[in-house]
């Protein structure tokens, strides 16, 4: 992530306390559990992600899919109506297809398991987008457009002609804060923490969860808890 004086330090203390990363091991592997039972499909995480990371118009790092035919349309299951969402962003795979194919190592692993981008090195070949089975990478097709000329994000803007994607808010993690999608979720459907620490809440829940496209062997660091209750209408 290109450097910029971190505005995270300037956050009000209450926010910093609420967003602090809990206890973790010496050598953490950051991961996330998303509880589909709790997700209400409100898109808060997707929207705060856009402003936190100053994601250009037309591009999203994080989006909320509806499990069904159309956005926010209930589906019928065994005579009941149900409506579930699948918030989707970079899965920070351990066996990341994008890292394998990038010809210039512009996308790479950090020691803590995060899949990172070097925007100064990326040649914009989009091979990583081809390789990603989750479709979470976005390309700067033109000069990135933003609703205001002022940089509103907490990180530097990415240049034309490069691929960008969710960084798990690495600028916040490095300041001891959870990613902003975790912080902002009104129903606390996102649990962030250290997968290397067996006692952490995220590790315990990850065991109960599933990963997306497991058969592809990508070993994501993001886990999902299935919806557990049927809503009756």
């Amino acid at each position: 992530m290109p450097d910029k004086v971190s505005p995270i330090k300037a956050l009000p203390p209450a926010s910093r306390t609420y967003g602090a990363i809990g206890p973790h091991s010496e050598r953490p592997h950051w991961g996330m559990v998303i509880d589909q039972e709790r997700c209400t499909g409100c898109w808060s995480c997707a929207v705060i992600c856009k402003s936190e990371n100053d994601v250009p118009l037309g591009a999203w790092w994080n989006r909320v899919l509806t499990e069904g035919e159309a956005v926010d349309q209930p589906k019928e299951e065994h005579g009941h109506l149900g409506m579930d969402w699948l918030p989707l962003t970079c899965q920070h795979c351990e066996n990341a297809p994008c890292v394998k194919v990038c010809p210039v190592q512009a996308t790479y692993h950090r020691d803590d398991g995060l899949v990172m981008m070097d925007y100064e090195r990326c040649i914009g070949c989009r091979y990583c987008m081809i390789a990603c089975p989750y479709g979470v990478r976005v390309f700067n097709w033109g000069q990135p457009e933003r609703p205001t000329p002022h940089e509103t994000g907490m990180v530097a803007a990415r240049p034309l002609g490069t691929v960008e994607k969710c960084s798990m808010c690495v600028h916040r993690i490095d300041e001891g804060q959870v990613p902003s999608c975790v912080w902002s979720c009104p129903s606390q459907a996102r649990i962030f923490g250290d997968l290397n620490d067996p006692a952490s809440r995220v590790s315990r829940l990850a065991h109960e969860g599933r990963v997306l496209l497991e058969e592809s062997g990508t070993k994501p660091s993001v886990f999902y808890l299935k919806p557990r209750r049927k809503r009756e209408l």
Binding site: P56, E69, L88, Y134, G135
Partner: peptide, 15 residues
């Protein structure tokens, strides 16, 4: 798209 749930992937330019 492998995860082809609605609304799909973001197009990449302002629409």
């Amino acid at each position: 798209v492998r995860i082809g749930l609605p609304p799909g992937v973001s197009v990449g330019t302002a629409m």
